[in-house]
Amino acid sequence: MKPAIAQYYPGDSVVHRLDARAKFVAVTGLAIALFVRDSFAGLAVFAAAGVIAYVLSGVPAAWFWRAFRPLLWLVGLTFLAQVLFAPGEPFFSFWIFHFSWAGLEFAAFLSLRLLVLVLIGSVLTLTTAPLALTDGLAWLGRPLRRLRVPTDELALMVTIALRFIPTLLVELDQIMRAQRARGADFGSGGPIRRAKALVPVLTPLFVLSFRRADELALAMEARCYRPGLVRTRLHPLRAGIGDAVLLGLTVVVIVAGLLV
């Protein structure tokens, strides 16, 4: 029971050691360039950069694949939609569907673009601890504090949410088991009946979560937490030469990708 997002793979590679902010900026930059550029050649450059970054990260292929596989659906769906509905001179028609070479090419391009995007994004989430990522985002979002956006509080919120996802999944499993032990059946019946069967599951889950929130808030206050406080960190974000190199290389890759 793991959330279907690219899971952090703890490690000590070059990519792991880079600052979360630098990685986030680099990935964002590449993603934008990826969408601006519309040629296979440009795509190839960005894909190469993504593959190199992945290889350097030292994340095992099996781990990567586990995170990657669910997203292939999305890619496949994009491809199908484009093939079936894209304009162009059809070489084959059936009902409302028209297949054209231009359509195929466009569909292939869009799916590849999505694949490269997922690859690059995965390298970020696979090599950056969620906590470091949220801290990085909070730092990057600091200008928003001027607009009274509580960025640090939001970051803490995300951290806590991440911390409790596994707990919540275990609890959900326990609740469903307790219901099944009393004869509940979640697998059969029509959609309405199934939805109804979920009420007894969600009620305790919500009640428990509210109580948890209450207790957690108390425990945080007991450890001197107050919203709006200026906090320090055990692991402060530290940008180094590596991060400068990363950003420099990213600029080079983007320029190369846009020009080829």
Partner: peptide
């Protein structure tokens, strides 16, 4: 373990 000290803004 660090959470309380972070709240009190101790140096890293």
């Amino acid at each position: 373990v660090a959470f309380g000290l972070e709240n009190l803004a101790w140096a890293p």
